[in-house]
């Protein structure tokens, strides 16, 4: 056990020394890994945050009924009775055109266009809270509402969020493919870097094999090099991501304040950071493992 630990410690020390001797190239390769990881991770953060936002909205099972402009007050009463008896409607709320007009005018100090309006363009409206959340049930309810006399439009409030959610799901798929492609590129880059290092250590490997080094002894420093490249690359990626998100959040804050939302992009997603580090280390290890195994078998000392 002690012996085994010693072997690992020695290999690790050796790699650190070699890296310190080639600080610039080690930094560059880590930077490449960092950038390659940063791109899909950033997109992931964007899509993930938007998904949680729309997911939250999607749970709204609200339908808005906009009545025709010329609807009579008797008609409104009829509709209200119909709604209160309906088994699938949890609650409903009437907002008359006058109330809506007042609300709008209260906000008009922020929007000069509203002040320009001379007469009330708004219809009477019912806001219905259904007691079902399934899209099919909601849709049939919406159609039913649409058919009521005096109703101009029955609209899902969350309609656009559904479309966005579909788009985001598509975006997520694209991210996975981009990430997979970049992972392959990283594998090649790391493999190639390690291969170059093996070439510079060729004499040592050859002599070591001749005097009785096992393959794992020869592999170990290169595997550690790959793992360290991955780890440093992930560190770069995380730092870059955090700073980019922070810059973005400034604009996002301005935007979501306009919608009176406190939506912000999450900067420290520990799960994402952990999986990024894990993936980077694994890719580093695998890339160097393939490279060093190929190199050992190419030397034909067996």
């Amino acid at each position: 056990m002690n012996h085994w630990l010693n072997h690992h410690a020695q290999a690790f020390k050796l790699v650190l020394t070699r890296m310190r001797q080639n600080t610039l190239s080690s930094l560059l390769i880590s930077l490449v890994i960092g950038v390659a990881m940063c791109i899909p991770a950033l997109f992931y953060v964007g899509v993930d945050n938007l998904s949680t936002l729309t997911h939250h909205m999607q749970n709204d099972n609200e339908i808005s009924l906009f009545l025709k402009l010329d609807v009579s007050s008797e008609n409104i009463e009829q509709i209200e009775q119909l709604l209160s008896k309906h088994p699938n409607i949890q609650k409903h709320r009437l907002v008359t055109k006058e109330e809506a007009w007042q609300q709008l005018q209260a906000k008009s100090d922020t929007n000069p266009a509203i002040q320009e309006l001379s007469k009330n363009p708004l219809p009477d409206a019912f806001f219905i809270q259904a007691n079902k959340v399934e899209p099919e049930a909601l849709d049939s309810l919406r159609l039913e509402m649409q058919a009521i006399e005096g109703v101009d439009q029955a609209v899902f409030n969350a309609d656009w969020t559904k479309r966005l959610a579909v788009l985001l799901a598509l975006g997520e798929k694209i991210i996975y493919f981009v990430a997979a492609l970049l992972a392959i590129a990283l594998l090649v880059i790391i493999g190639n870097t390690v291969r170059m290092q093996i070439l510079t250590q060729k004499d040592e490997i050859e002599v070591s094999k001749l005097i009785g080094a096992t393959n794992s002894f020869i592999r170990m420093p290169f595997l550690y090099a790959g793992v360290l490249y991955g780890a440093f690359g992930a560190l770069f990626a995380i730092v870059m991501m955090a700073s980019i998100i922070m810059i973005f959040n400034h604009s996002v804050a301005q935007l979501s304040d306009l919608y009176s939302s406190d939506f912000r992009l999450t900067i420290f997603d520990s799960k994402l950071f952990l999986s990024m580090t894990g993936i980077a280390i694994f890719i580093g290890w695998l890339g160097s493992y393939i490279a060093v195994n190929r190199a050992i078998s190419a030397m034909k000392i067996d």
Partner: peptide, 23 residues
Amino acid sequence: SNAIPYMRRRFGLIFQDHKLLYD
């Protein structure tokens, strides 16, 4: 093949071209 390295450690090898590491 995984026993070969341990067999080689019984020998001390001196090569015609030394095979010293110059780094």
